[in-house]
Amino acid sequence: MPLVHVSLRAGKPEAYRQAIFDSLYRAMHETFEVPEDDQFMTATEHDAANFRYGASYLGVARSDDLVFIQITANNTRTVKQKKLLFRRIAELLSESAGIRPEDVFVSLVEVAKENWSLGNGLAQYA
């Protein structure tokens, strides 16, 4: 049950944001075996004064089209699955939204299964 938050510069059309959501879900479905309808995502847009990044940190040439993606997920995936996820996200965002791979920044936050409540005050995975 990944929870995804996307941060990007303000001004992109709704279709662009929806393409990001669709691509992220598809990548997680393909690489993390996320089930149908397991789509919990938000997007936050920021003006230039509230969006800062290292334009060349670690030799990656980033632009103002940078997209920060934070995925919180169960700590059950292998390193191989994580690498496949990162690669697939970059591929799909390039194809669907025209985002350069250099502008795809992904952070994976892993949590134990018992740390989720998906509604009704229950710990569904505990």
Rank of each mutant, 00 (worst) to 15 (best):
A73T: 15
A112Y: 09
G59H: 13
I69T: 03
S96P: 01
A90S: 08
D65P: 04
N74R: 15
L84A: 13
E36L: 12
F68M: 13
R62V: 08
R88K: 14
A73Y: 02
R77C: 13
E110D: 04
A97H: 05
L108P: 03
L108V: 14
A112G: 12
R52L: 14
V109E: 14
V111S: 13
D64H: 09
D103H: 02
L93V: 00
K82Q: 12
G59N: 12
L85G: 06
L84E: 13
K113V: 12
S56C: 11
T76C: 12
L58V: 13
R62D: 10
D47N: 13
R77P: 05
P101W: 02
D38W: 08
E102F: 05
R87F: 05
A61E: 12
S107C: 05
S94I: 00
S96T: 03
A61D: 08
Q39F: 11
M41R: 11
A73M: 14
E110F: 09
V111T: 14
E102H: 07
A55H: 13
L108H: 10
L93G: 02
E110W: 06
S107Q: 07
L92E: 02
A61W: 00
N74P: 08
A61S: 11
R62Q: 13
D103Q: 07
F51G: 04
T76R: 11
L92G: 01
V60G: 02
S63I: 10
